[in-house]
Amino acid sequence: MISAYPTPPNDRPVPTPPPKPAASDRIIPVIYVTLTIVALVWSLSGMDISWGRIATRSQQATVYFRQMFLETDWSYLPKTLKGLQESFQIAALGTFLAAILAIPFGALAARNLSRLPVLPAFGKFFLNFIRAFPELILAIAFIKAIGPGAFAGVLAIGLHSIGMMGKLYAERIESVDKNAIEALSAAGASPLEIFRHAILPEVLPDFLSFALFRLDINIRAATVLGIVGAGGVGTLLELQRRGNNWRTIGTIFICIVITVIIVDFISAKLRAKLT
């Protein structure tokens, strides 16, 4: 056998291994594993799983699945596409709104832009607070505030996305190249000019990439918003679910999945071009 490495001489004394960590340190992983198991058992105890019911239901489910995927009602396609179009419009508008509005919020939350540490702390708290509300909760709130429809969906998606994108923007701004900022500052540029001419050119391609990724997520979100009445293809889904029309639900389901896959693909391609 040919080896690239010469065999080391074996006549050296075996090195003494370092002392083992104390028993108190070795017990820590055991505690974590135990806690995880306890949490799992506790969660399962809240499930009330009835295996008999699952068995009978799953027989029924095969009927529904057959109706959805083998007896799909393609006459419902035009309506579905119209709904999907609205979902896309909701997602696009909401993402656009958030992509722009997240810039000032992201700049506010970035630690390297302000001399007062209170401002980024406040900005971060505000973004965390917005993010804490799921889109569906926001949609229900906006429906109460401005009435049901697509615009409530736009606002729900937009607001939630500001929280998400603002955080990403802030982190990107925090990792910006300090050298260029120093140079512009030395040339007498004002803080706004430094943001415009040193920071924005560097971060904008990444901001755009974040926005495309967010659009991808928001299209998924916009397909279910209709279930609570915030427009889009979800409205149709909810309507057909109430009527137990599994053949049309199949149409909607297949169209949503295909749309999401296509958008996913395009968004990934575009983002790859941005770096």
């Binding site: 190249d177 050298n179 260029a180 140079a183 512009l184 007498g188 004002s190 001419h197 050119p201 560097e202």
Partner: peptide
């Protein structure tokens, strides 16, 4: 500062901007 030019060891350019944009930064102040 508007009338004091400065050159650095690591050039300190805005890397994603064009050369012209970088040179124009000298006019900001």
């Amino acid at each position: 500062r508007a009338r004091i030019g400065m050159i650095f060891q690591n050039y300190n350019l805005v890397r994603r901007s064009s050369v012209l944009r970088n040179v124009l930064a000298g006019r900001l102040a």
